[in-house]
Structure formats: C-alpha cells, structure tokens
Design a binder for these strands. Structure first.
Lengths: 338, 338
DNA sequence: TTTACCGTTTCAAACGTTTGAAATAATTTG
DNA sequence: CAAATTATTTCAAACGTTTGAAACGGTAAA
C-alpha cells in the first residue's frame, strides 16, 4: 500500500540514519545501546510493522523452526485433537508444524520421515504406524542430532527413546473396576494390534483390575483385532459365540471398535446384545447418535498428550534436556459416563 | 555419523577442488558447465546426500515456501479430507503447509491471519468462519501481493476473489430429484448459516429440482439452522410439528444435522420418523453405525476441492495467473446411495 | 598534553545459495 | 604463431540477520 520496499533492518537503518547493527542490537536490547537510541529504533520499527525475516534468521541460526509430525491419520479424533495441543504451543514458541499422515503404512511412514529429514525439521513428533517394527528411518534423525518424540504409540520392546504416552494401564484399570462395581463377573477384553505396546499396558490394567476385584482371569474372554472390520468380527465371534457363559461386559482398546462389535452382534441377532455394557478408549462426539451407546468412555486427553509431546520436544531442541537422556511422560486418562 | 560438517555447496566444492558457483551451476544444469564436470558434481552430491538448504534458498528467492491454511475445525471430515488433497500436492511442489483452526470464530480467524501474514506465507487457503462478514484481515494479504484462495465457503455478496467451491447447486438438485423420483411430494429443505453463500446455491438447487419435477414450492417446508443443536431442534419443530401435511423427505445442508434431526424426532416419538428419507451434504464414515441412516449422501469430494485450491494458489504464486484475474473453480458433487 | 578508559556506534564476516559479469583456458582462424 | 573466438570456470554481490571486534568521540586521570 504505502510502499512496497520490504521493511528490513536496512530499511529502518536508512530511515534513522544509523547502521544496521545498531538497529539490530537496539531491537534485541543490547545493553551497549543508548536507551534513547533504543527507544527511537523501537518506535520506528513499530511504525513500519517490522518483523524479522524468518528465512534470514533460520539461515543464521541453522534452524528451520519447523516441527514435523507424523501420525496415522486425521480421521481418528484422538489425533485431530492432539494436533491442537501441539500446534497451539508450537506457534506460541515461534515454530511451525508440518502434519503428515502415514495411513498406518510403514512404506508411507518411511517416505514421510525421509521427506521431513530433507526438509531439515528441527524435531519430530511421531505416532508410529501399526506396521512399524524397525526404526532405521527414525533413528537417523537422532544420529543427525534431530530429536524425536514418540507419542501415544510406542514400540513394545524396550527402545531407548523419548515418549509421551497416555496412561492406558490406569485407563483400562478404572474401566474394568467400574464394570466390576456394576456387578459384572464375566468381562471380556478386546485388544489391538500387538506390535505396539499400547496393547500391553491396557491388557495389564484389565488383568490387575480383575485381580483387585477378586475375579479370576479367563483366557477365553480375551481376543485381539486391529482396525480391520473382518478381524474385529472374528474376535467378536471368539468372545460371544462359545459354549461357556457369555461375557456381559467388554473393555475395548478403541471405542470405534465397539461400534463394529455392536453392529455385528445386532446383525446376527445376538439375543441380549443390548445388555452388554461396553467401555472403550476414546471419546467420540458421535456416540450420542447411537441407539446403543457404550456405557462410558475412557477419555485419553489427546490435547494434553499433544502438548506434553511438543513441550518435551522443544526442551530437547533447546538442549534443556540432553538428547540421550531419555524421558517418559505419562498422561492420565479419565472415565467419562454417558 | 561419518562426519558432522554440514553438506553444503562449499563442502562439495572443496572435495571436488572447484568453486562453489561451478557446483551450483552443475547441479542446476547450466549449459555453460562441461558435461564431465557436471557428472562428477552430481555423483559427489549423491554420494554425500546433498540437499540444498531451504532457508538459504528462501532468503535468496524472497519466499518462505510455506502455504497457510485456515479452516473452521478438523473435526468435520470434509476439512480433514480436503487437507489431504492440499498437502499431497503442496509437498510435491516443495511447499510446506501450516494448518490452523478458527473454530468458526471471527476473532480467532483474524488472529491466525495476522500470525500467518507475519510468518510471511507465500499464499493462503481459507474456509472462512461462519461469522466472517468483513474481509479486512484477508484483504491485506492481496495488498501485499500474497494470493488468497477461498474454498468451500464463500462470501454471499459478490466479492472479487479467487474461489474453489463444491457445486452444491448440482448436489442438492440431484438429491432433490432423486427424492422426487422415489415418489415424494413433500420434501423439506433444511439450510445452514445464511452469511455464507453455501446456503444460497444449495437452496437454488432444491428449488430448481422441485420446479423441474413438477412440484410446487411451499415455504413451510423450508427452515434454517447452523451447527448449534438448539437451533436445529427449532428448525425441525417448524418443519415437522405443523397442522399441514408433514414432509416425507428432507434435504439438509450438512449430513450431521440429519443425525440431530433424527435423534430429536425419535426422542419426541414422532409417529413415523423411520419413514422420512433424508439426504445431506457430506459422507460420514460413521453413517453405517446408525440405526436409521440417511437414504443417501451427497459426496462433496473434499480431496478434489483441496487439490483444486492448492493448484490454483500455486498458479497465482508463480504468476501463471494474475492476482487480479479472479478465478472460480467448481467441483461437482456425487450422490452416494447407502 | 598525553594516556587511559569509558559509553556508544560501526565494521565486517558469517549463514548457504544464485547468477550476471569477469577471468581464464582451450580451440579455431587467418 | 598471434589473434580471435568459444568453452568453461571463477568472482563477487546479493538476500536479511546476528555478533565479536574495531573505531569513534568524549571525559577523566596522570
């Protein structure tokens, strides 16, 4: 409008008839700069809406001020909400966030990781794909000094890495205890893909709750699936189409899986599917439209998980924490009744 | 690993005992460079995994290679899917995408717009909030030569701007015709927030379909709402709690609104809510879990809308199209039966 | 008057790239 | 064999910022 020459330090310096370095130092509050000069510079900068050129700064500081985020997909509300926590905090600290989806495919994840590495991101936050068992494509980040924070999903074997996880043990413990308190004796457990440890903790929460509640464990009440409907149906068949006494309640590793389960039981006209009380991880807004909504949801506080992940990552980037000093952050879950 | 000095042009030049400019020109296929030299340079670059430093390039080219995207939220699957179209194409062309959510609030949108402008994005793609009536915060982009593409949501009055829209006229026309073909005589129309024109086109599609189908228009069959449940209930009351003959079908500006409608009708035990045939915009994966799913969905092809938006934006950034030569792109909808 | 020492400002190099102009090397021409 | 021409490489400036070192003007001490 007024002028189309870019407002740079040089521009301000010419207006003020002083050198570029004086202007720079004045804006950065160098003590050697005369306070009157500093004031004049700041006024001029404000008047012209000066903003330091990020590319120049990046070049100088050898940083990109970009954080890479890889997650399986954006259709899962957990991830969508966690992004809000990440973006909010990153933006505040002057970082930009690049979000990319692996669609739970290892090949795609590798491609994205390489892409982000080439983009020279300053750090990476990742929820690994369900296929990821090998971590070469992620280890290269740390080798180059780029910190990586694993969030939500975490390799089952003891990998040395920074992680931010939902306290799924506590989540399924509470859910199971709640079901026990409602009088259930036969509570089924439906677990997720075995390759990521998020199954493991949930299962232990269930087991411990049973023990503490004085109910003996029955392996027939446990089945596994993933995000594939067919596998879910198989699992449901294992749990509900047996000779032994049927389960009257269900704890599932993901709430959406319960929807598939109920739909299937309904389709085969399972005699008392309406009475089965289900609780799963997640808190889908959609739930209220269902005729047979789950009894409760385990709210995973995705926003908090996201915020913790970015907070940790920034500490690593700023070397407040050593890259080899591996951290583990747990975020509690909360049982939400409907 | 092998070495921690950064792989730059200078680094390669020293290895090859030639000047930085030769290396640069060889990599950029300058015809003045000897082909043998070029080959040697390229081999060396490959060997050391050379990638040009983006910050340096950005500084030189006076670009950020960042595209800003502002959208109301990520919980709506339309937006989530449209992002995929945007990101995919942008990444391919060497651009990064910053996504931010306005939560349909004008104040937040203004904040984000200013933030992105200060971040020196090369272009902006925006789905305006439902509160946006004034465009100062967006006009400043074009004034500074930063192109803006409005997508999906478009100001109702005739604003000169670049837009990529779903062909909602065609979408609701087809939906209405389909309902007529199934014998419906009283088809209600439930529209959305009036401030954005996306209501307008949909309504016209409905009207024209009625006309072409030989059904006379009845103002009593039209009501408006937004994303607020209470307003939806009011609208449903207007449509379904009257003396005059009840509607037997419904066309809604958003599919999720239908869920609220059905839920309400069910809760008040509306005598024949199960027979009402509904069609809305959107194609929610969730639909299959409902006991009374809509008859059909109007698929808006969000991915294609996103892709068209970023394609147009990049053309504007590269000045293949003049910033003042306003473009309008329409993406057809498709009726999906369930 | 010279020297020393402030407080303040400016110089100059650096970050990694591109690119027109200038310099050099190689080849052809007369 | 010198001159002209062409092919190839290098120089140097620029993009906008930061920052240690050098320079400046002024005052105080010797």
């Amino acid at each position: 409008m007024e002028n189309n020459t870019p407002v740079t330090l040089k521009f301000l310096a010419e207006k003020l008839k002083m050198s570029v370095s004086t202007v720079s130092k004045a804006l950065n509050d160098y003590p050697t700069i005369n306070s009157y000069t500093r004031q004049r510079v700041k006024e001029m900068a404000q008047k012209w809406h000066f903003t330091p050129n990020k590319s120049a700064l990046n070049l100088k500081e050898k940083k990109s001020h970009i954080i890479g985020v890889i997650l399986p997909n954006l259709l899962d509300h957990f991830f969508t909400k966690s992004i809000y926590g990440i973006e909010q905090y990153a933006m505040q600290k002057g970082y930009n966030v690049i979000i990319s989806q692996s669609y739970d495919e290892l090949q795609k994840e590798i491609l994205l990781a390489n892409m982000l590495l080439r983009s020279r991101v300053d750090g990476l936050i990742i929820a690994i794909s369900k296929q990821t068992k090998d971590f070469n494509h992620l280890d290269q980040f740390e080798k180059l000094g780029v910190p990586v924070v694993y969030y939500t999903r975490n390799p089952s074997f003891n990998l040395n890495c920074h992680k931010v996880l939902g306290n799924t043990f506590q989540g399924s413990y509470e859910a199971t205890r709640f079901l026990i308190s409602r009088g259930h004796k036969r509570i089924a457990y439906l677990g997720g893909p075995k390759m990521t440890n998020f199954t493991h903790d949930r299962f232990n929460g269930y087991i411990n709750a049973l023990k503490d509640g004085g109910i003996s464990f029955d392996a027939e009440l446990v089945a596994y699936t993933d995000f594939d409907k067919e596998n879910t149906i198989n699992a449901i068949q294992k749990l509900f189409m047996t000779e032994s006494p049927q389960p009257t309640a269900l704890v599932a590793f993901k709430e959406v899986i319960i929807f598939d389960a109920i739909k299937y039981l309904k389709s085969i006209k399972h005699p008392n599917f309406e009475e089965i009380e289900c609780i799963g991880f997640g808190n889908t807004p959609f739930i209220h439209y269902l005729d047979h909504p789950p009894l409760a949801s385990i709210e995973e506080n995705p926003q908090s998980v996201g915020k913790n992940a970015i907070e940790l990552l920034l500490k690593l980037i700023n070397k407040d924490i050593g890259i080899g000093d591996y951290q583990k952050v747990m975020v509690d879950c909360k049982l939400v009744l409907h």
